[in-house]
Structures are given as C-alpha cells and as structure tokens.
C-alpha cells in the first residue's frame, strides 16, 4: 500500500496569462505507507506547491495525484491527511486550546475527547500552560508549535508539513524532531516534510527528495539508512555521510565537491 503517488505531475500558475509560472514539471514520486520523505531545495522550487497538490488544495495542470489509493480529491474529502503550513495560520479569535480542537470539532468529536486530545498535543509541543492564551499573545515559534499540535491532533494517516520547525530554536527543534519521529513510528504515519535544513532532512527521513528551481523539478532522491534514531545518531558517521550526499545532490553533480 502506498501513501502518495505522483505521476507526471506539472503545475503551471496563471497558464496562458501574464505572469505564467511553471512551478513544477514532470514530478514522479511515490511515498510508501509509513515512510518519512523530506523535500529540500532552493526557495521557489515548488516544495509548497507539491504539498498543496498532494492535499488537493490546488489541482495539477498535468499528471495524477493519488493519496491512500484514491484520487487526491476523494482523499481530502475523507480527511486522509493533516497539514501544517509554512505560516501558522491560527484563528486569532480562538484560544490555543480551541485552535488545536478545531479539526476535532469538524470531525464531530465530543467535547471531552477534544479537550483531552488537545491537552495531550499541547503537552507534546510544550505549550500546556498556554492553552488559554490567544495566538496574538504567543511568539512566532510558539504559534508554529500550536499549528503542529493542530495538525497532529487527529492522528492523520498522512502528515504534510511545510517547514514546521523553521521558526524554532535549536533545542526545541531537536526535541520536536524526536517527538515527530516517535509519533510517526508508533502510529505508522506517512510524512512529507519540507525543510531548508540538510541535517534535519537527513535525521528525519527515510528518503530525501532534492529539488531544483526554474522549472521546479525533482533532481535526485537520496536514501538514508540510519536505523533507529537515538542519542548518538547526530554524531554518527552515517549521519554525516547522508548530509554530504544531500549537499552534493543540492549542488548538482556537475559541480565537484571541493572538500568533504
């Protein structure tokens, strides 16, 4: 069973009009069930666009997107995925807790269940004592963590995350990386994760998808095999090998590495 299949997907914005942009072209990508895939590439190479296509928030100009064995549209209707955008996108009239409860509310969860799940998720992202605050009272990184809690709250079979840890300090970031891996492993969640950090991509992923811009496309896929992540993983030689491979792929094969 595969979580996501993209076949020959292209996306052209404003086709045939002024300001036509080819955001993605000829994208083929398969994400296996339970697999963790990172997208990395220069700004504007279409990473967010790719996530939006998988989430059926925009439609491809060509090609097909299949999620959980269904067309993306059906998968969205069946709420097969949870998404955390590049910006937190919290509702500023709702408290932190009620923001996290929103997707549960829309699924018709009971009040008690919602409160419990929201608590649990806020604890996870370290914001339990801010449950009653409003988004405007939080820092950018805290808002981002609320958005992550909101995406995780429904335990979706597929997680789409767009630079979720971008605004976080290094310590929190590493802790949340481990939490995310733990959740994904224990619930069998498949994940597509956009990041600008090579070490983050390598640490988290089973495969790192390297993209390049103009036009946006996949240039390389780097498999990572670090086994079980733990205390020592970030110092292991395998980790650094992975980083080197991804960096090389990002630079393009034509450009030789000057030094390791």
């Amino acid at each position: 069973m595969t979580a996501v299949v993209l076949e020959g997907v292209s996306k052209v914005f404003n086709a045939g009009r002024a300001g036509e942009v080819t955001a993605l072209t000829g994208v083929d990508l398969t994400v296996a069930s339970g697999e963790f895939v990172s997208l990395i590439g220069p700004s504007g190479c279409g990473k967010s666009t790719l996530l939006r296509l998988v989430g059926d928030l925009i439609q491809p100009s060509a090609g097909t997107v299949t999620v959980a064995g269904k067309p993306a549209r059906t998968a969205r209707a069946d709420q097969e995925y949870g998404i955390a955008f590049q910006q937190a996108g919290l509702f500023d009239w709702r408290t932190v807790q009620r923001n996290v409860e929103l997707p549960l509310e829309l699924r018709g969860a009971s009040r008690k269940e919602r409160a419990e799940r929201a608590r649990e998720m806020l604890e996870l992202v370290g914001l339990a004592e801010f449950a009653g605050h409003y988004p405007a009272q939080l820092s950018g990184g805290m808002q981002q963590r609320v958005a992550i809690a909101r995406a995780l709250a429904v335990h979706p079979p597929l997680l789409l995350m767009d630079e979720p840890f971008g605004a976080l300090d290094e310590m929190t970031r590493e802790r949340l990386q481990d939490e995310l891996l733990r959740i994904c492993a224990s619930t069998g969640t498949s994940t597509i994760f956009v990041t600008h950090s090579i070490p983050e991509a390598v640490y988290l992923s089973d495969r790192v998808v390297v993209m390049s811009a103009r036009p946006g496309r996949i240039t390389d896929v780097v498999p990572i095999d670090l086994g079980e992540r733990g205390e020592t993983t970030r110092q292991s030689p395998g980790f650094f090998t992975g980083i080197t491979k991804v960096r090389k792929a990002l630079r393009g094969d034509a450009m030789p590495l000057v030094s390791a």
Partner: peptide
C-alpha cells in the same frame, strides 16, 4: 485559513 478549512473537507 480557507485552505486549512478545505484541508478538513
């Protein structure tokens, strides 16, 4: 925000 609501179907 609209995209978020869309993602929740």
């Amino acid at each position: 925000a609209e995209e978020l609501m869309r993602s929740y179907a």
